Amino acid sequence: MTKLLAARYRAATDRPYLASALYALSVVASTDVPTMGVDRHWRCYVSPAFVDATPVGELAAVWVHEVAHLLRDHHGRAERLPAADQRDPHRVNVAQDCEINDDLIADGLPLPAGRMEPRLFGLPTGQLFEAYLPGVPQGPPPHNCGSGAHGQPMPWELAGSDGPSCLGPVEAEALRRHTAEAMRAHRRSRGTLPAGWERWAEQVLEPTVDWRQALAGAVREAAAWAAGAIDYTYRRPSRRSAALRGVVLPSLRRPLPRVAVVIDTSGSMGDEELASALAEVTGVLREVGIRGNRVTVLACDADVQSVSRVTAAEQITLGGGGGTDMRVGIAAALAARDRPNIVVVLTDGYTPWPDESPSCRLVAALIGSDAPQPPGWVETVRVVS
């Protein structure tokens, strides 16, 4: 234990911005863990035999490696992988080690032999593990970093998340932010910080919102709002009518919203970004049960070019028009016999907008990072490739 804690002290002294995270780890000795590993509750499992056989300098590097899994939320990110990848935790672990180790090697840390790094698989450095994963072959890694890395509980891990030795999700997130702020301060005072850690700190302190999640959330929330317009109907009499002889009571119904998707088909629009945005919209609509004749797609530049039932991204055909005026498409959608409850506009933003909010939910998916901001009453999601 003395040797192990001396290695942690060296790691924290050499890289003070990691000190709080390193000392937040609680140590659990285990003869079952191959080397060192962590669980999602910030417990670090350590093999006594591995400590005996490893120099202090290399142990310090392993400390940094293991805490990096938790700081980078590898277990949380692993849970968002496709199911097939989640079923192969060893391969996920290798990809995660590649993400960490290329930064640690560039920082001069003496990692033990057998380390995983991108060059072993012909992969470039500086990538996230999600990008490395397709290039990692199947097969068990030389060691296992635990559920704090790949997300799958290991037999040598303690059960439960209670007790003073565990960190909960809220405390862990606060510690990540504290560490990121310490890295930024270190960068300003000393001017040196490994590129991988610098990118991570900036992401924590100034996170980039995934436009797919934001767009899906906006469409889903608008659909829930429109579906909340509960009304009465006599098409299906209330079951309470049986208690009142000669009286027919209406039942409550929750209508399924109608949706209009206005697509900017002017020449400035990019096919790939537009297809991605439409795929997200149609996917969410199918998920909430809105499809078929309840979705109208209007292709519009300075005029409405077509009105159709496009239901998939591959069905898009863009025509380069002269001007751009999404007001025309919005007005045409609202003037239809089946008036929509939700209008989604896919545009690069270089268009005039209506002078006031229409009597429906309006969501704008702005294609491109430099798209102008629409009026404040427009629900806006920026689609950036």
Rank of each mutant, 00 (worst) to 15 (best):
V51A: 05
P340F: 00
V170T: 15
L5D: 13
G191N: 12
R245V: 11
F129L: 01
T125H: 14
W63F: 02
A218D: 07
V288G: 04
V204A: 03
A84H: 08
P124A: 14
A106I: 09
P89E: 08
G196Y: 00
R10I: 14
V92W: 00
R40P: 10
T13D: 12
A214V: 07
A312V: 13
D370V: 13
H150K: 06
A371K: 08
V281W: 00
W156R: 09
H41D: 14
V51K: 00
R220E: 14
T311R: 13
G196S: 05
A201C: 04
P82R: 01
T2Q: 12
I230Q: 13
R190P: 04
P207G: 08
D88K: 11
D103L: 05
A218E: 11
V383M: 03
A277S: 15
A49T: 12
T282Y: 01
P194W: 05
W211Y: 12
A19F: 06
H150R: 06
P354L: 11
Q305H: 13
M154W: 01
P89N: 11
R15H: 11
A83D: 10
L123A: 14
Y132S: 08
R91S: 09
P82C: 09
V261K: 06
D103H: 07
G246R: 05
A95F: 04
G57R: 03
R240A: 13
R382G: 09
S251R: 02
L175G: 08
H41V: 09
P124V: 14
A335P: 05
A275F: 00
M326H: 08
D14F: 05
S165Y: 10
L5K: 09
